[in-house]
Structure formats: C-alpha cells, structure tokens
Design a protein around this nucleic acid. Structure first.
Length: 103
DNA sequence: CTATTGACGACAT
DNA sequence: CATGTCGCCAATA
C-alpha cells in the first residue's frame, strides 16, 4: 500500500496536522515521532514528498526561524507562508516563536 | 554491508 | 553575525 516507511508516514502525519497560519520546526516533528535527533531524516522524508499536495511541507521550518528549503524553491515557500499569515523578513520568520505550532 | 546524500542542530572559530 | 565542522538519523545506490 504505502511505498513509504513507518518513519516517513509518521512525519507526514504530523506535518499534515499543522494548522493554517502556523509553522513547526523540524526538531519538534522529530520529537513527536519519537526521534528528536532524526531531524535530518525528517527533512529527507519531506524532500521525497510522496504526496506533496497532501502535505503542507512549507509549514515546516528550521529551529532558528529560517525555512531551510523547499522542493519547489524558497520563494514559493515564503510566498505560501506569507499568504497564510506568516510574516517573513530577510528569509526569516517574523514573530517566529509566536508563529510556531508547539507541542 | 559500506558509502553517499540530505528540506538539520548545536557549537566552534 | 557568517562560516565551518561534527554529530545524528533514515533512505538510496
């Protein structure tokens, strides 16, 4: 059924739960799935992005408020976030702590 | 099984 | 503040 591993599925599940207008950091996603150190593996799962239109990957950002990267390009990620109410300044999220969806 | 890669994090310089 | 290096994990070749 799923071409994905359990790890990826968990990552995607968590990311899909992110409410509009909020973001989450890779580290929190990793922690939620039970591997707080697997932040890189989390990014890998999203990079493969098996069901891109089904997952708001653009709502996942780095711990310092930068967006890290995006399969479609940084500009796209910034544009999407801004569109959802997230303010971006110089490639970083403004009011970052307040905009981040925490556990 | 080993090596390489990757949308990261924290620390050192 | 910017850049570099190490550590961590999972997927893929």
């Amino acid at each position: 059924m799923s071409n994905l591993t359990k790890f990826e599925k968990e990552v995607l599940e968590e990311v899909k739960k992110i409410p509009t207008g909020k973001v989450i950091i890779y580290q929190d996603v990793a922690k939620k799935i039970g591997n707080p150190k697997a932040v890189r593996a989390v990014g890998n799962a999203l990079n493969k992005n098996p069901n891109a239109p089904n997952i708001p990957c653009h709502r996942v950002v780095r711990s310092d408020g930068s967006m890290g990267g995006y399969k479609g390009g940084f500009k796209k990620k910034i544009a999407l976030l801004k569109k959802e109410g997230i303010k971006i300044k110089q490639g970083k999220i403004v009011n970052f702590t307040n905009a981040t969806f925490k556990l």
